[in-house]
Amino acid sequence: MLTDFLQLTAAGLSQGSVYALLAVGLISVYTVRHVINIAQGDFAMMAGLGAVWLISAGMPLFVSIVAAVLTVTLVSVAIERLIIARVKKLTTLVSIILTLGVSTLLQAILLLVWGPEARGLPVFPGSDLTIAGVSIRAQELWMVGALVFVGGGIVFFYEKTRFGKALRACAEQPVAARIVGISPVMASVLAFAIAGFVGAIAGVVSSPIYLSIWSGGLLLGLKGFVAAVLGGFSSFRAAIVGALLLGVLESYVAGYVASGLRDAVAFFILILVLVIRTDGLVLKPTAVRV
């Protein structure tokens, strides 16, 4: 019993690490642009499929991964420059429709370029472990490791460095940001670059186990969003904890209740949290100026 429990926990934590990386990407963009990027999960799928393709073209694993991650980062920046920045009055309604359009477009491109099948990268180097009957795949350690190093690095950047703090303040206090030499344009580009980067990292580390498929990004991105909501959509740390919790909870539901309900967990939590803490979850209540 205990072995099973630990086995499910381990699987949940590795899956949760992927959600956490996506949540970090979503929050990066949200704090600067007040846009929830529905295409966030598609970055992961694009990186995964791109890397698979590079490997099939004869490139070594890590070269393919680096190339895919950098490409996706550039794609994310291009989306910001060519599409998001073009809209003069980016209302909530417009931003949702726009990123939804981008997401649909990216999915269609992935489908046209790499076809409808799910593909996976080969597993990363390392050997699987069995600790007290619990099998831990080396790839799962890579996933958790990606969260610790990449996710942790981004959080450190935002929370500890002067530049990062100014970037976060950019949305509320453009003046403060300018003092350290960040223009709103640069802040926005940087935010999308970070979002593309962490999304791509999440995509490549999860690809060997969870595979990459053209249509998989939406659900993945949504789970990142749920994690971000759990963290109040402003705290990276809380979002990461929320993501890990979500991953573990999904794993328990799939193991102990019914695997078909796995994907429903995130949305029940989302609606429950939003309903119970309607006010508490709205960012910083913008001061009413009337």
């Binding site: 019993m1 072995t3 099973d4 086995q7 499910l8 699987a11 899956q15 799910a118 996976g120 186990i209 969870y210 595979l211 498929i213 249509s215 998989g216 794993s251 799939a254 193991g255 019914a258 695997s259 078909g260 796995r262 994907d263």
Partner: peptide, 20 residues
């Protein structure tokens, strides 16, 4: 009986239960 989606990629929960 355990079930999985057509698009499922992670089977850890199902197989953990089968193993047990």
């Amino acid at each position: 009986t355990e079930s999985f989606e057509l698009t499922a990629t992670d089977f850890t929960p199902q197989m953990t239960n089968v193993r047990a």
